[in-house]
């Protein structure tokens, strides 16, 4: 296994292939495996060097008590690029990982050739998503119900509670689908670190700052995603943005339709 010391923690990463660099950042409570089923191998075969990483506290990377804001995680990403001697790269992220990538493009534009942002929520819009009527809550509660967990009404917008209950459901994706999750480390991350509160910290990535990100950006959402509010804002605010709505997908749509994503990415990074 490959580890590298970044900002005081041991970070796990995998590098594979040869060619221009594409670096991939998973979302909240995910890990690097999400890229390795279709998207990573296809991009490697198309002639790119692929680097995937486990963010601080996730996967095999070390858990630290703090440092989980998208800005701090972008600093980890920058440190990884430095440590691996990657001068600049195409940076691909999903969900919170895409927020991290956007933060890197804002603060270190010289390191980001293109920004490939799948379903960024944008911390600066988190207040919108905290409202009771936000569709994401209904969707999330519905998914839990399908898995046999009834969420009491007073908990239906409780982020920390829903994260924890979600860990009790069997896995939805991958070869271990239907089997229980290993919850220990993820519970530690939710209970004993600043992750849940850091998720809402805007930092430098204010709504105004987004307008200064000139990096060519591929912005992808599923057409049924409950993050479309962020899509509407970003497609208008990002100065150099190519917006894409995937037919039928939800928040995980871009990962569930890898063939489409691969095609869009390969077209975009070539330009």
């Amino acid at each position: 296994m490959a580890f590298i010391e970044v900002n005081g923690i041991k970070m796990h990463y995998i590098t594979n292939g040869e060619g221009p660099d594409i670096v991939m950042v998973h979302g909240l409570l995910g890990n690097l495996a999400v890229w390795h089923f279709k998207i990573g191998p296809a991009l490697r075969k198309a002639g790119y060097r692929i680097t995937t990483l486990d963010m601080r506290g996730h996967g095999y990377s070390e858990i630290a008590p703090s440092g989980y804001t998208s800005e701090a995680l972008a600093a980890d990403l920058l440190a990884l690029l430095d440590a691996l001697d990657i001068e600049s790269a195409h940076i691909l992220g999903h969900s919170y990982g895409a927020d991290v990538c956007m933060h890197l493009a804002l603060l270190h534009p010289d390191r980001v050739k293109t920004l490939l942002a799948l379903e960024p929520g944008l911390p600066a819009l988190v207040e919108e998503r905290k409202k009771d009527h936000w569709g994401g809550w209904t969707y999330w509660v519905g998914r839990l119900k399908e898995a046999g967990f009834e969420v009491p009404p007073e908990k239906r917008t409780d982020f920390r509670y829903l994260l924890k209950v979600s860990l009790e459901t069997p896995k939805f994706y991958g070869p271990a689908r239907g089997l229980p999750r290993k919850r220990g480390r993820l519970l530690e991350l939710i209970n004993n670190t600043s992750l849940v509160s850091d998720y809402e910290v805007v930092g430098s990535l204010t709504l105004g700052a987004v307008r200064k990100i000139e990096t060519p950006t591929l912005l992808v959402y599923g057409e049924n995603s409950y993050f479309l509010g962020s899509y509407e804002f970003l497609r208008e605010a990002l100065p150099n943005c190519t917006p894409v709505l995937l037919p039928g997908g939800e928040h995980f749509g871009p990962l569930e339709q890898p063939e489409m994503i691969i095609e869009h990415i390969l077209d975009f990074v070539k330009c």
Binding site: I14, N16, L32, K171, G174, P175, A176, L179, R181
Partner: peptide, 18 residues
């Protein structure tokens, strides 16, 4: 690998890489 050793996707990916 999965039901007995408790492999998760991540373990499978890391193992495949190794």
């Amino acid at each position: 690998l999965f039901s007995e050793l408790g492999f998760e996707s991540l373990d499978a990916v890391v193992f495949g890489t190794a």
